[in-house]
Amino acid sequence: MNRTFGGPAIFLDRSDINTDEIIPARYLTEVTKEALQPYLLEDLTLEGFDPRGEALKQAAVIVTRKNFGCGSSREHAPWALEVNGIYTVIAEGYARIFRQNMFNCGMLAIELPAADIDRLFALQQQGVVTVAVDLDRQRLVAAGSRQELSFDFPLSPFDKALVKAGGWVEFADARY
C-alpha cells in the first residue's frame, strides 16, 4: 500500500483522549468504515477545538499528549481517522490496543518524548504546522511559518513492516 504520511497537523492538547471521544459508542452500530466519517472526535470537549471545524477537516496529522486512544478496543477509532484522511498520529504515548490498531491498519502511531512534543506544540503558535514523514529514515519534519523542526522517531521493525505491508492482515496472510 502506498500511502503518504504527513500533511497539515491539528493539535489536541490533552492526555488520555479516549476512544469514546474519538468515536462515540452510539456509532458502533455502523458496519462500514465510511459511515464513521462525519463523527470523528464528536464528543471531545477541548478549548479551541471544534469537531466540525476547518482545522480538523484539513488535518492529515494529529499531535497530542500521553495515552492517546485509551479505553475501548474499537478499531472504529483509527478507522474514523483513516476515512478522514488522517494516517499519522504523533503523541507522547498511546494505549496499547489503539497503537496496535493503527499499525494493523497500515497507519503510523509515532511516539516522541515529552520535550519534543512540547516543541511541536510551541511551533503551533506560528500558525499552521505541516508535517512531512520519511518512513524509511524514521524522521519527521514539522514546518511552521518561520521555523522547521526535525525529529528522529523510533519504530519497531514489526510496526514498520506492518506499515510497509499495508497492515497486519497482509503481513499475516503472507506468512502464516
Binding site: 478499531e75 496496535q100 494493523n104 497486519w168
Partner: peptide, 10 residues
C-alpha cells in the same frame, strides 16, 4: 487480551 478488529480478523 483485548484487541481491535484487524487482530480479531487475523
Amino acid at each position: 487480551a483485548g484487541v481491535g478488529t484487524t487482530d480479531l480478523e487475523v
